[in-house]
Design a protein around this nucleic acid. Structure first.
Lengths: 191, 191
DNA sequence: CCTACCGATCGGTAGG
DNA sequence: CCTACCGATCGGTAGG
């Protein structure tokens, strides 16, 4: 039993690493099996298919994002603070799972139906939570009268690329980074 | 002669479309050939290999970005204006070639050596041009004393995702968009 | 530009 | 968890 669970986890971790490095389509089940240390057919004792593996990685991450958002937003009253905390929470989820995050962002299109549709629905729902905060913040004057869709786009584009920052030589401190990115997005770079 | 050239262009355009939609690794030469309207082996009259095709798409785009940057920056004196114009020029290159741009951003890792190394070198060089403007703008007081690497990261993350905006139902006007994104990055959303 | 074809590899199954 | 194996498809070449 313990062995089974642990091998399954190893399969998932190896898949995250390989899918991230070279892409879902470019990784074969034989290569994945080799990384785990078993034969290819044995992988099917843990996952029904290659797609099944991808699905677990992607939906796991989706749930992490939703949970982190819920916890972050509830603590604040001002919309600008809600947005700031939601930004930090989002970055933290990525920082804690950089490999899975990269798969989530770059390989989701290989999901098969009906999961592809469900995935897109969840992403839109999550995006709308952010837009909602922005719009309420505009209404009560905390934010400028910006295009909320475009503002959400700028925020997500930035946040969803943060996994890149963990592989760089010029190391950036995590705590500082959260705050700096939030400040850049909220206040820009101009004096 | 005309036929030869036109078929080659058609191969490139079809490749851009298919690589963008489903990824370089997931597209076979037979599927590409079918989209062009020829047999798979005939593709090799135009490109030496699948990788050769990807290389042309990626390096074409690289040159477009460099050229656009040079033209934009030279027109301005203030660093904040240089940055703003460079941002707009970058967005315009993507807007004019959304399919090739998406391949450029998402499929470059399938380039083979030595081209992969050359590609990375060019990207870093381009990124440094932006950082340079930011740092000079900080020195002369046009910008806040931000982390220039992080500021460049926020800018590029946003710009390099703009191809997403052209497939959305909620249509955003191109001219307005350039300016709005530049403003959001320069001044943020906070009142 | 085509037909015919190569060896290699693909995701997955049968059966134990 | 394994060995043995399936039909399908891969990028690419030979030769015309």
């Amino acid at each position: 039993m313990e062995t089974t669970i642990s091998t399954k986890q190893k399969v998932k971790q190896s898949a995250q690493k390989l899918f991230r490095e070279r892409g879902y389509a470019a990784i074969g089940m034989r290569e994945l099996a080799k990384a785990v240390g078993i034969q290819a057919p044995s992988l099917y004792n843990h996952y029904k298919s290659k797609d099944d593996l991808l699905r677990e990685i992607c939906f796991d991450m989706a749930h992490r994002f939703f949970n982190a958002f819920g916890g972050a937003v509830i603590k604040e009253k001002l919309f600008s603070n809600k947005l700031k905390e939601a930004i930090k929470a989002h970055i933290d989820v990525i920082a804690s799972n950089p490999e899975a995050a990269e798969v989530f962002f770059n390989e989701w299109m290989f999901l098969e139906q009906p999961y592809l549709l469900e995935f897109k629905k969840m992403r839109l729902e999550y995006e709308m939570k952010f837009r909602n905060i922005i719009e309420k913040g505009i209404t009560n004057g905390e934010f400028k009268n910006v295009n909320s869709k475009l503002a959400a786009f700028v925020i997500f584009s930035t946040l969803n690329a943060t996994y890149e920052l963990y592989s760089t030589k010029e190391k950036i401190l995590q705590e500082q980074m959260d705050e700096d990115i939030a400040q850049l997005l909220l206040k820009g770079i101009k004096s």
